[in-house]
Design a protein around this nucleic acid. Structure first.
Lengths: 110, 110
DNA sequence: TCTCTATCCATAGGCTTTCTAAGTATAGAA
DNA sequence: TTCTATACTTAGAAAGCCTATGGATAGAGA
């Protein structure tokens, strides 16, 4: 998360990770970095949240991993979306859209 | 919740309840109804989520309660925002805006 | 009258997820 | 040689939402 008192990341982390992997395989640390950069550090995914999330998603068949070597010459575990993962991403994208729309209705109500 | 597989309500429920109470005191059941109506049933707040949330927020001083009698002649516990609750609401509103903006950046990234 | 539905509050127990914190290890810069 | 950034792992705690259940009453309809 970051420092937004609310527990907002919960329920959204999977979506963020899936989307981040959608444009190509990345290793865990790189996923976190990419999310941080994309959001100008508004969101920081802690390692203690990220890795368990990756294991969970792999267990569910949404992503798969392979050990490779990074540009920095280190052994890294590279994750990529499976076809089930793409479906999951599509579902979570529409759910996110519907959810924010619904919240918007409450916030605009009077 | 509703039936949005994701755990999105978590972290947003307080915001929804605070906002719903912002235009005037309401009893618990009415809060749930109002949220459901405002969202055209896209969001349904379960009683098992709502009441504990109300107790939590009262314990934190964001809302206060008083037993009254409803239009339907029943004893109801009416909740209303405290000044601390209004501040909390303001904070959560901006946090929500920042968070959705950040998520948007990830979802639009490529 | 009796029954059923909608209204209303309450809470226990379980489940999931995130965070904190700690540990391990290596490449490259200083 | 030391420090920093990179990179993975996992244990344990904390928190919140959901399912399920319980109880109670007003009013409509049969």
């Amino acid at each position: 998360m970051g420092k937004h008192g609310l527990d907002l990341l919960r329920g959204t982390l999977d979506l963020l990770v899936l989307k981040t992997l959608a444009t190509g395989g990345l290793h865990g640390y790189a996923v976190a970095k990419k999310i941080q950069e994309a959001t100008d550090s508004m969101l920081t995914v802690e390692e203690g949240s990220l890795y368990p999330a990756l294991y969970r998603m792999e267990r569910r068949g949404w992503i798969e991993s392979a050990w490779t070597v990074s540009d920095t010459k280190r052994r890294v575990k590279c994750y990529s979306l499976t076809s089930a993962g793409r479906e999951q991403l599509d579902g979570e994208l529409s759910t996110w859209g519907e959810f924010t729309t619904a919240v918007g209705k409450v916030l605009e109500a009077r």
